[in-house]
Amino acid sequence: MRPTIGTVLSFLAAPKLWLFVFFVLPMMTMVLYSFWRVADYQIVADFTLRNYEKIGGNLYVGVFLRTIRISIYVTVLSLLIGYPVAYFLARKVRRFKLTLLLLVILPLWTSYLVRTYAWMLILGTQGVINQSLMAVGLIEEPISWLLYSDFAVTIALVHIYMPYLILPLYAVLEKINPSILEAAWDLGGGRIRTFLSVILPLSLPGIATGCLFVFIPSMGAFVTPELLGGTRSIMIGSIIAQQFGVAYEYPFGSALALVLMGIIFATAAISLRYGKPKGLA
């Protein structure tokens, strides 16, 4: 088939154009704005580096660091909790495989907002956990750090994003050729050694992709920390959203958002590079 320029364009150009206009151009606009400033509720288009200098100060560096920290907690927890599930689904079940996979996916289809809100009902002083524990007499006073805390933010984000980690991991684990495992067994590798030296390295690409799928949205989270976070749980997403929704500080907000993007893309580049399967490529 010899495609004409016209047909190629009609298939490829329209979607690309849409992404260009409503994704690439907006991102470029943000770059532009990040070098501007606001004076008396007007955006003034003259070049300044002040927004970036401001981010370099203790305050925002601190918030970025705690955002990264919480996102890492969320990612690591999701991996520890999700890996056995992915492994089980990929290699240990046959009959109910698709049903179980569907069950893992189902919560992804429900609203992020609803899933966040649900944790308020569960973790609160009058919530399900505290009241149940008090009813059976395990505690006398409600545990207050359950809600409005880093704990609440972390557990809710794990709940919301973990399925995104299980899926790519499952895909990779399922593709591992059983004969490789048999070989490892035959060579006298124990269960743990086989896992550590064969399965784990082979699943690295899945781990890398899955972790990114958790890490990236966690870095940008703002509704969850706002609803569930305590006085110390401020995350960069909230500060960015604040610059647009509450303060008319688009330039500073754009600069913050671009720094966030920088961190995300750097993390993505590193984890995708090291996420290549080792040895048996």
Partner: peptide, 13 residues
């Protein structure tokens, strides 16, 4: 690969 927050504010900008 981009958080929804950033898609949103980029469009707003």
């Amino acid at each position: 690969m981009v958080p929804r927050l950033i898609i949103g504010i980029a469009l707003l900008t």
